[in-house]
Amino acid sequence: MSYNKIDELPQDIREQLPEHAQQIFFAAFNAAQKDGMSENGAREVAWNSVRNEYQQGNGGQWQRKPEDPPIHNKAITTGGN
């Protein structure tokens, strides 16, 4: 059963997840359902999608993960012949 709007998500999900994370869950769940996944499979895909950007904090509330620091690759130069 796909959701038509975010307000249709189960109450526990709406209470735990911030609005952006709800949007991620909603979109991932509906996409998985459209691809023919079972409801349980689609729910797992949706939670994994949320976990890519959010982590569960104290009290069960989800918070956005800190961004990874940029990696700077410095060129290595050697003295030559």
Rank of each mutant, 00 (worst) to 15 (best):
residue 1 M to G: 08
residue 2 S to N: 04
residue 4 N to F: 02
residue 5 K to P: 00
residue 5 K to R: 07
residue 7 D to M: 03
residue 7 D to V: 02
residue 7 D to L: 03
residue 8 E to V: 03
residue 9 L to N: 11
residue 9 L to P: 11
residue 9 L to R: 10
residue 9 L to H: 04
residue 10 P to F: 03
residue 11 Q to W: 05
residue 11 Q to I: 08
residue 12 D to I: 10
residue 12 D to V: 09
residue 12 D to R: 08
residue 13 I to A: 03
residue 13 I to C: 00
residue 16 Q to D: 09
residue 16 Q to W: 06
residue 18 P to E: 03
residue 19 E to M: 03
residue 20 H to V: 00
residue 20 H to S: 06
residue 22 Q to S: 01
residue 22 Q to W: 08
residue 23 Q to H: 05
residue 24 I to K: 12
residue 25 F to M: 14
residue 26 F to A: 09
residue 26 F to K: 13
residue 28 A to F: 12
residue 29 F to C: 14
residue 29 F to E: 14
residue 30 N to Q: 15
residue 30 N to G: 14
residue 31 A to Q: 15
residue 31 A to R: 15
residue 32 A to W: 04
residue 33 Q to P: 06
residue 33 Q to F: 12
residue 34 K to W: 13
residue 35 D to Y: 13
residue 35 D to N: 15
residue 36 G to T: 14
residue 36 G to P: 13
residue 36 G to N: 15
residue 39 E to H: 08
residue 39 E to W: 08
residue 39 E to P: 01
residue 40 N to C: 02
residue 40 N to Y: 09
residue 41 G to L: 11
residue 41 G to N: 11
residue 42 A to Q: 12
residue 43 R to M: 06
residue 43 R to S: 09
residue 43 R to V: 01
residue 43 R to Y: 12
residue 44 E to S: 10
residue 44 E to G: 01
residue 45 V to H: 10
residue 45 V to L: 02
residue 45 V to K: 14
residue 47 W to E: 03
residue 47 W to Q: 03
residue 49 S to V: 00
residue 49 S to F: 01
residue 49 S to R: 08
residue 50 V to H: 06
residue 51 R to C: 00
residue 51 R to F: 01
residue 52 N to C: 03
residue 53 E to V: 03
residue 55 Q to V: 08
residue 55 Q to M: 13
residue 55 Q to F: 13
residue 55 Q to Y: 08
residue 55 Q to P: 02
residue 56 Q to P: 00
residue 58 N to K: 14
residue 58 N to H: 10
residue 59 G to C: 04
residue 59 G to V: 04
residue 60 G to L: 11
residue 60 G to Y: 11
residue 61 Q to T: 07
residue 62 W to S: 13
residue 63 Q to E: 08
residue 63 Q to N: 09
residue 64 R to H: 02
residue 64 R to P: 01
residue 65 K to F: 04
residue 66 P to D: 09
residue 66 P to Q: 06
residue 66 P to Y: 05
residue 66 P to I: 09
residue 67 E to S: 02
residue 67 E to M: 01
residue 69 P to Q: 06
residue 70 P to Q: 06
residue 70 P to W: 01
residue 71 I to C: 00
residue 72 H to L: 09
residue 72 H to W: 05
residue 74 K to Q: 06
residue 74 K to H: 12
residue 75 A to D: 04
residue 75 A to Y: 02
residue 75 A to N: 03
residue 76 I to E: 04
residue 76 I to Q: 12
residue 78 T to A: 09
residue 79 G to L: 14
residue 79 G to Q: 14
residue 79 G to V: 11
residue 80 G to R: 12
residue 81 N to A: 10
residue 81 N to F: 04
